[in-house]
Design a protein around this nucleic acid. Structure first.
Length: 423
RNA sequence: GGAGAGAUGGCAGAGUGGUCGAAUGCGGUGGUCUUGAAAACCAUUGUACAGCAAUGUACCGGGGGUUCGAAUCCCUCUCUCUCCGCCA
């Protein structure tokens, strides 16, 4: 959510830049500003009336004590008249505030200057490519075949007990998964992130705080009886740790990492992309979250990108980094870098991480602030990224390292798996 | 699931209808004293909105009501805690 003051101060620039995100409703922005004008005038009118009725109430108290009944009754009447007026003003104020919020929630975050224009993922810009695409034999297999050949994942069993998109890991597959989680968490804590194990269910306020609610309601699993949502990413609980918090400037940067399963309904996803581990309803992910001073958030974004790169390099996976174009950028993000690894069994790039700077867009919803040098409260910047999403890493590792004698485990992982080949 | 208790400022904890945005203690910040520190003492210390400012308004878990006036009374919701039962 953008701040109204920010919209006022930068109206034309914001309208221009939002076009990059294919948001062309400049009307909404004008509406917000004029509604806010209305809000201000009604509020000051109502404040004046309330001030009068407060003084009246005090006077009545004094009059009663000195037994001046008649004068008191006179004031009572005036107070009742004021009360009627303020009641009407308050209710229209509430209406305006709701309307204002509804409009504000519709305006996406303003894209950063680096964001290229474009309509779809085809327009994303490759900013870096690293590693050699492995040359496999003509008998190479996709991971779903390898997983059943080596007994790593039982997709059918998942279908039986839950449904499609809920794989069951087994044997060395389960061990590899566990190894990856530990490895990622260790990498992140070595880089200074504090490890958390958050709840996997969150309340409505948390869903709103990070921007999943109200628009992406249908993408989360919802438990009606308790009005709780299964988290679609650890970003939701972890970032919401800091909802309604005022930090001191020396608290920066706040760095958190958490492993959680992620639950996504993926309503409306069909087609061949969903085969095997490519798209799941439940998957594991290790997330990194940072809260930063606004002046340092872009510097931090780069550091996070480098951190994710270093993990992929250690895993010896060929990857590329994309700067998302306006059309592919998420509603809440100002700048996002996607990481894709090459999965040689399927011969395609798989997204394994998405590192974003939300600037103050989430903070404004979360009411996450800090005291600046003038002692004023100011919104923080929030950032997050995957480090890393498990299933596609799993898929790429299995596919890229397949040999006739088995699947080789990269060196960096061996101390975690305690085996160096799956055969 | 049954029974009960509670929700007040960063924390602890007073406050049962008018001068309560809220005592007191702790903590934080600034200062005095000191070679330095501690102690002691003094001052200061919530958030939001409007305003150049003075200041005004709102907020004592959320929502609603009674009243000229509510932290205080009433209704309702949520959450937390304790005991019993069940259970990883």
């Amino acid at each position: 959510m953008l701040q109204v003051q920010f919209l006022r101060d930068n109206r034309n620039e914001i309208i221009e830049r939002l076009k990059i995100k294919n948001f062309n409703e400049s009307l909404v922005i004008n509406q917000v500003i004029s509604l806010d004008d209305k809000r201000k005038s009604i509020q000051s009118e109502s404040d004046e009336l309330l001030a009068r009725s407060n003084t009246i109430a005090k006077e009545i108290g004094i009059l009663f004590k000195s037994d001046k009944r008649e004068e008191a009754n006179c004031l009572k009447e005036e107070s009742l008249r004021i009360k009627e007026k303020t009641k009407a003003l308050q209710s229209s104020l509430l209406e305006i505030q709701n309307e204002l919020r509804e409009l504000l929630v519709k305006i996406p975050n303003v894209p950063h200057h680096l964001v290229p224009s474009g309509k779809s993922d085809a327009d994303n810009v490759i900013v870096k490519e690293h590693g050699k695409i492995p040359e496999l034999s003509e008998y190479k297999k996709p991971h779903w075949d390898l997983c059943s050949q080596y007994n790593l994942i039982d997709f059918e069993l998942g279908n039986k007990i839950t449904g499609a998109g809920f794989p069951v890991y087994t044997n060395k597959g389960a061990k590899l998964q566990r190894a990856l989680i530990s490895y990622f968490l260790d990498k992140n804590t070595e880089a200074g992130y504090i490890e958390y194990q958050p709840p996997h269910l969150v309340n409505e306020d948390s869903g709103f705080g990070t921007g999943q609610l109200p628009d992406k309601e249908g993408q989360m699993y919802h438990i009606k009886e308790d009005n709780l949502y299964l988290i679609p990413t650890a970003e939701v609980p972890v970032t919401n740790f800091f909802r309604n918090v005022i930090l001191n400037k020396e608290d920066f940067p706040i760095k958190c990492t958490a492993f959680t399963p992620c639950f996504r309904r993926e309503a409306g996803s069909y087609g061949k992309d969903v085969r095997g581990l490519n798209r799941l309803h439940q998957f594991d992910k290790v997330e990194i979250v940072q809260i930063q001073h606004p002046d340092k958030s872009y510097e931090t974004l780069n550091v996070m990108v480098d951190h994710v790169s270093s993990i992929l390099e250690e895993l010896e996976l060929p990857y590329r980094i994309l700067r998302l174009c306006g059309g592919d950028l998420s509603f809440t993000s100002a700048l996002t870098y996607d990481f894709e690894v090459y999965s040689a069994g399927q011969d395609r790039w798989l997204e394994v991480s998405s590192v974003s700077n939300f600037e103050s867009y989430q903070s404004n919803r979360l009411k996450l602030r800090f005291k600046n040098l003038n002692g004023k409260t100011q919104l923080c910047h929030t950032l997050n990224g995957s480090a890393l999403a498990l299933p596609r890493i799993f898929a790429a590792l299995v596919e890229n390292n397949q040999t006739e004698s088995g699947i080789k485990i990269p060196k960096a992982l061996q101390e975690y798996t305690r085996f160096n080949i799956i055969d």
